[in-house]
């Protein structure tokens, strides 16, 4: 692959990708207080990997984040979400009843905070895994994107 005329792109992307990933985690964990949450953070993480794939090539991205990992991540995300429901069931509450997680009276917020944090984590894993699987499925079919293709 010719790599001479994309030097600026590569240098800028290398600095930008960690910041994008960091921003995704800010969005994830600040979702209780400002706009954001698992869906947005999951897509932002996926977009960071996609940017890496676009700039450095899909094989390089697959070495960093293997397709096996992304599709397991999607399944694990849904399992985390459903698992919180079963956790609440085991504690004697209804499915996904966060108030029952720590046997709290109404008006106490520990269970709600923990429950929402964990399910948002599940959403993050599920969405980022599914989006990356979709991207790999499309991008992995193109042999190699040349500059003349545009």
């Amino acid at each position: 692959m010719k790599s001479d005329h994309h030097v600026i792109l590569r240098v800028v992307a290398k600095g930008l990708i960690p910041i994008i990933a960091l921003f995704a985690f800010y969005v994830q964990f600040h979702g209780d207080f400002g706009p954001g949450g698992g869906f947005q953070a999951g897509v932002i993480i996926a977009v960071a990997v996609i940017l890496y794939a676009l700039v450095f090539g899909v094989p390089a991205a697959m070495r960093a984040v293997p397709p096996v990992f992304t599709r397991s991540l999607a399944a694990i995300g849904v399992m985390i979400y459903a698992g919180v429901g079963f956790w609440a069931l085991l504690q004697g509450g209804n499915y996904l009843e966060y108030q029952a997680l720590f046997h709290e009276a109404p008006g106490e917020h520990h269970g709600q905070h923990i429950g929402i944090l964990v399910i948002e984590l599940g959403v993050l894993c599920g969405v980022s895994g599914a989006m990356l699987t979709i991207f790999y499925a499309f991008a992995g079919r193109v042999a190699e994107i040349r500059d003349e293709d545009w």
Binding site: P59, A74, V78, G129, A130, A143
Partner: peptide
Amino acid sequence: TTVVFAAGLAVALLLGFGERSLAEM
């Protein structure tokens, strides 16, 4: 979330898991 997961699975079943790039790698 399950719908998103199922859609990802459907795309992977239709188009594969990016075997061509995988082979290149």
